[in-house]
Every structure is written in structure tokens, then in C-alpha cells.
Write a protein that binds this DNA or RNA. Sequence first.
DNA 1: CTAGATATTGAGTGCGCCCTCAAGATATGC
DNA 2: GCATATCTTGAGGGCGCACTCAATATCTAG
Lengths: 193, 193
Amino acid sequence: MNQPRGLRRDAQANVEKLHSAALTVFSKTGLSAPLEDIAREAGVSIGTLYNRVGSREGLIDAVVPAVMGEKLKALTERTLAEQTPRAKLERFISEMIDLQLSDPAMNDAMLRRFPDATALINACDRSTALGHELVENAHDAGVLSHDFTGEDLMAVLWMVGTASRDRTAPAGWRRVVDRSIAAAWTESSQPAL
Amino acid sequence: MNQPRGLRRDAQANVEKLHSAALTVFSKTGLSAPLEDIAREAGVSIGTLYNRVGSREGLIDAVVPAVMGEKLKALTERTLAEQTPRAKLERFISEMIDLQLSDPAMNDAMLRRFPDATALINACDRSTALGHELVENAHDAGVLSHDFTGEDLMAVLWMVGTASRDRTAPAGWRRVVDRSIAAAWTESSQPAL
DNA sequence: CTAGATATTGAGTGCGCCCTCAAGATATGC
DNA sequence: GCATATCTTGAGGGCGCACTCAATATCTAG
């Protein structure tokens, strides 16, 4: 959680101010927010921002993976608490969508818009792995069509993220996505209550 | 097709050079290509570009609707030549997708990325109207689920356009879209050969 | 208290693009 | 051929953002 010691006390304080400012701004504007905004929010000059955090990726990695990790942990628990493979997968999808819609920073993260923020990418990879696993389980249980792959799941979520961040998206996008998912279940499968 | 007379001959020639350069560059890079690229391609200075065409929207409108209109006309003919309402709609969808994938300029047009290019928007509106009509006919013939609306159709096409222009799109996007369409037909409906 | 190591600062530079305008070039009517 | 209305030109200004660095301020160990 803390910086590699050796920083002067004021510098240390600035790091913390920058981190919390970054969190605020990222959640409002997304991970591509101007770094100047973050410096201002932290009450610190742009030079200091660079001195303390080095790069946008550094700042993202210092701050977002923790939040994201928390959310994913809770999400995973809720997902695995469901009874059937289908219910699990449905839960996962709807929770992931909620996460993306809840906050531009989460959305940018899931869309992998900053591939050099390696810690963040790792966090995302974990959720991707969970998704793939749930798809496989659903296949094994015979509730999900075999031509709906893990890749397809990720594509669905990518589209949700993309559509939601674009204000020119036409009204029907959500229905399109929902229909695509709905069509992937097998006949023998029962929707969760 | 021509400028409102009164231009000196050299100026007139420049207009033409600019139009054809615009066509070339737009098809390669899309409608948001730097205007400087177009001036260079036309062998003319950036100042002249502004003198002759005024704005990006002016240039787009002077050049893209004609091409688009041609393509839409042919597309419409082919669509209406199909026998059944379902075949018509399927044809329309696949032709529209091909059009979007064929050329960044067409894609930007269909995505309505330049709402102030009014002539272009008009052309697009005509194809939208056709889409809505085909959806209605399919509803009337009982081959298309009533909860797949004209708006849904446009959302599908919007997603195709968006996914295809984003190189970070995951591999499965096309299948997601196809499944969404496939799921919209009613049981009584027969796919075209 | 002070020297010197450590931080902060913000004006400045760069980049890509949009758009303008004064100075110079060119066509055209007479 | 010449006068002049018409065009072209490209350097320059603006904008938003990333990123740097010499000058200045602040900590802290002794």
C-alpha cells in the first residue's frame, strides 16, 4: 500500500494526496482523464505529479487495482454462491455489466484501454479466467450452447463497455446484447428464478 | 454536381482536385482524416482548402453523399429483389454490414459521426427508413419477433460499425452480433437458402 | 541553526490538429 | 499589355494535452 520508504515526509503526503485525487478523478472521467486535473484535485503542481508517480500507468496501477480487486472479490463470491452453473454465469454477466456501468474507471479497466498498467491488467485477467471457467462449467452441464465460447462472453462484455461509453449509441444496444446472451442457452436449460 | 459559377478557372480546378483528394483520403482514413492530408493529396495549400470548401462538413457533404447514394441505391435494389420479407431483411443486414466493413468513410457515415453533414445524414436516414420498413414487413409476415424493433436493427448495425473500427475489439464480436440477429426470427420463419 | 539533500514549482517545449490572414501570385476583361 | 478583382500561400495563433527542467523552497540530520 505504501511507497518504498526514503521519501521525505511532505513528498510522502503528496503521494497520498495524488492517489486519492486520482481515484476521484478516474471514477468521474475515466482512466484517460488529463493528469493536470488530477494534480489540481490533489492541490499539487503538475511537476510534482510527475515526480511522484512517474506516468499515468504508474498512477493507475497504484490506485485502481486495489479498488477493482475488492469489487471483483465480492462479485466472485456472489457469483459462486449461486446454485447452478447457469445461475452462476448469469450472475457473473449481470454483475460485470453493473460494474462497467457503475464507473468509467472500471469500464476503461475492463476494456483494457491501458495495457501497460500491468497490475490492473492482471486483475482483469483474473475475472476473465473466472468467466471462461463459468462458461466451461455451463457447457459441461449442458445448459450453454457450445458455440458460445469464453471469447464470446468477453466480446459481449466488451460491447457493453463500448456502447455505454459512447453517447451516440442508439437506444436499442442493451436489447441487442441481452438477446445475444439469451440465445446462447440450450433448450434443456432453465433460467434462474 | 458543380460549384455555383463565378469561380475563376483555377479555383474551379482546385475544387475538383480537393473533392477527389477528399474521396481518396476519406476512404482510406475515415471522415475524421486531418484536412491537411487532403490538401496535400490535392496538391494545394491548407489555406486553399478552407477557401474552397469552408469546413470539413462542407467537404464531406460535397463528396460522400453521392458515393453513398449510389451504393445505397444498388443495395436497395438487391434487397427488394429478394422474394420473402425475411430474405429481404437478411439481405439488407448483410449488405449494410458489408458496406460498413468495406470502407471507413461509409462506416463513419452510418455511425453518424458528423451530424452536421446534413446531406450525408439525409442519405443515411433513407437507409434507416428502409430498414424500419423491412422490419415492419417482417413483423406483419410473422417471421420476426415483435420485440426486435427497427431501433434494434439500427443498434445492431451501430455495434458492427463500432466494433469494426476499434482494433482492440475482441475476436468474438461478430458471433455475438450474428447470434443476436439469429435469435430474433420466429419459429415459423424459414431462413433463406 | 545551518548546510545540503530532497521536493516543489510552473513556465516552457513539443505535438497534432484546426483555422486565419496579410502578402504575394494569377487570371481575366478591357 | 495592364489594371484589378480574384486566388493561393504558409507561417502563425489557438487549443488541449503530455512531459521537462532550472530556479526556488522546504525538510532534516547533526
